[in-house]
Amino acid sequence: MTRTDSPRRWYLFDYGNVISTAPTPQDWDLLAEATGVDRLQDPGSTYWRHRFAYDAGSLTSDGYWSLVCGDRVGPLRAGWLDILDANQWSHLNLETLDVLEDLDARGERLAVLSNMPAAMAAQFAGAPWTKLFRHTFFSSALQLVKPAPSIFERVLAELAADPGLVTFVDDSPANVATAKDLGIHGLLFDPSSDLSRLLAEGRAVSGALQE
């Protein structure tokens, strides 16, 4: 039996590498020049090694960039590095935006859940893309970081949503796996993904489960 009065679904999107594209080599070169540290894009670099703590709000901007640079960084320089960092993550995926605008035009309920430091979230506040979303959840404000189950549980509580009525799109297999463990319909995104098709297939699977 098909339900015709099912509750409304939430669509929950990651930001980096989903709404935005990855930083360009030129972006990383600008940050390397400003920090004096090469290859910050590498997984084992100081940029990534301390990123979870920065995303969680456990480090100030000064503290994070001091760890990245390996030397004391004052507030003014840290502020400039935060601007460069936000800029390199500000290149938007136009295909994703098209899908988001279509969902919004259809009256779907959209939210963002992103690991993002407070300085970057502040720089993006009021950006045109944020107006598509009813809620924006950033790790630094929640003081919780994906893929911890607690951050998803917090978001579900804020949305007053049943996990089975949330579709979550993220580029991290670990984040998607945690969401699925909690009963959320998780979809793994990569730059080659056809987001419209991915969501359509997700709706078909979710609909079958609710019949």
Rank of each mutant, 00 (worst) to 15 (best):
P149Q: 07
A174D: 12
A125P: 03
V68M: 04
F189S: 13
G202V: 06
A204C: 11
P147G: 04
A32K: 02
A105V: 07
Q26L: 08
E33Q: 14
D181G: 10
L59P: 00
R8L: 11
T24F: 01
T167D: 12
P147M: 02
M120C: 12
T130K: 10
S140E: 00
V169D: 02
V176W: 10
Y11Q: 03
L84Y: 09
A177E: 07
T130M: 13
G74L: 09
N87F: 08
H135C: 09
L40H: 05
L100M: 12
W65S: 05
D170W: 01
L84A: 03
D27Y: 01
N93F: 07
S172A: 15
H185E: 14
G74T: 07
F13E: 10
N115M: 04
V73G: 01
R49M: 06
E201A: 15
G44F: 13
G107C: 07
V68G: 03
H91D: 12
S139E: 04
S114Q: 01
S58T: 07
E153T: 03
T46V: 11
L113V: 11
H185S: 14
T21Y: 03
L142W: 03
V18E: 10
K131G: 12
T2Y: 11
A157D: 13
I83T: 14
F189D: 12
A22V: 05
A119E: 06
P173A: 15
D194G: 09
Q210P: 02
A177V: 00
G70A: 05
A160R: 09
V99F: 10
I83H: 12
A161S: 04
D190T: 04
L132V: 04
A141P: 01
N175T: 02
P117T: 01
P43I: 09
F137C: 03
L182M: 10
A160W: 09
H91C: 06
